[in-house]
Design a protein around this nucleic acid. Structure first.
Lengths: 193, 193
DNA sequence: GACTAAATTTACAATGTGTCGTATAGTTTA
DNA sequence: TAAACTATACGACACATTGTAAATTTAGTC
């Protein structure tokens, strides 16, 4: 998993692959709290006990899968990151590459990123804010004068990351009504800070 | 719960209050998947069977609690929303009121909004983006020319809501290192769209 | 083909779930 | 105040899930 030098036994890889596919399938069919090791092993066509040879429990397995995902995304993004440091470009191709990557693996990302668990509270607040901001955008006619306020860096990072991730999640929830290219352009123009 | 006219029996209110407090306590102590009806009833000092007289299961109870939360937030925000429609103010006092309200109930909001369940994947991506955006902010020296792009309304709403909620969550995670007033000002200056 | 590691099989105790009656205590209404 | 109503407690039940521990079979490696 983390060390590709070891663990090359095809049986191990096969079993873990089966488990991952089964988990994704089940996450598509039911909310995570309903997924048991029983069901998972059944779906993966492996013995229940075998599961425990690989993962402590289901949360542990999710964590490992998240690690894998993070690694993959990093690879997609890394090249651009290097570029970024060299040239101070303003088009930020990384974003587009990221969105393309997500679109290519849309089935996976939609399931893992929009799976309802206890995102209930966050979701509720999110919807509330969406309504309010929507209304605000409607009634926005006046111009915004440049109020010179120094923005705390960490706040800007919070704001920017949440906006980016949240936009991607909403985009996936709606089954990607825009192309990655178009969305990237839109997001870039919103990041006007 | 939803209809305050009925369900005035003090026993009902007491029991539900106990259950809610117990659930919050347990959420503080362990991740949600470890919380069982058993433990919950034990902590709430009620019989396990009584739980089922009020909620179908724990996810159901969480949903009801989220409803209550949403209602409360709406009350805090509603006055400002009405104001907003009347006057086209640009200071958006709603945001500050919301943050104050959250700060006043910080214990509750921190627990329910930052509770780790299967937000694992989202969290991972969030962190990744935070790193990247952070690096980008660092190397941002050049000025951003006003590229005239029409922004899709729904995308702007996604972006704005996610940014707002995400910022609040990050703020709670860090135990509110800024005052609601300061954070409101910062967020407002970031919402430059 | 022999050695090694993974997977299966069976079994077990512990815990959790959801749903029964029935008894008891608290609340509301006449 | 008494009667009618309702929520809660209690014990019990069948059933599912969990995590672990053998012993055995299967598959991969050298």
């Amino acid at each position: 998993m983390t060390n590709p030098n070891e663990r090359t036994d095809p049986r191990v890889l096969r079993t873990r692959q089966f488990l991952k596919e089964a988990l994704i399938e089940l996450m598509e069919e039911m909310s995570i709290e309903k997924i048991t090791v029983n069901r998972l092993a059944q779906r993966a066509q492996i013995n229940r006990v075998t599961f425990y040879l690989h993962y402590r429990d289901i949360p542990d397995m999710l964590e490992k899968m998240a690690d894998d995902m993070a690694e993959e995304v990093l690879e997609v993004v890394r090249e651009d990151t290097d570029f970024m440091e060299a040239a101070q470009q303003e088009k930020w191709p990384m974003l587009e590459h990221l969105l393309v990557h997500i679109a290519e693996n849309a089935k996976f990302y939609k399931i893992v990123l929009t799976s309802r668990k206890s995102t209930i509270f966050t979701d509720r607040l999110f919807k509330l804010m969406a309504d309010i901001i929507s209304a605000r955008v409607e009634s926005r006619v006046t111009a915004h004068d440049a109020s010179e306020v120094t923005v705390q860096k960490d706040i800007a990072v919070w704001y920017g990351s949440a906006a980016l991730i949240g936009t991607i999640i909403a985009w996936l929830r709606e089954d990607m009504p825009y192309t990655p290219q178009y969305l990237a352009k839109q997001i870039t123009s919103l990041r006007a800070n």
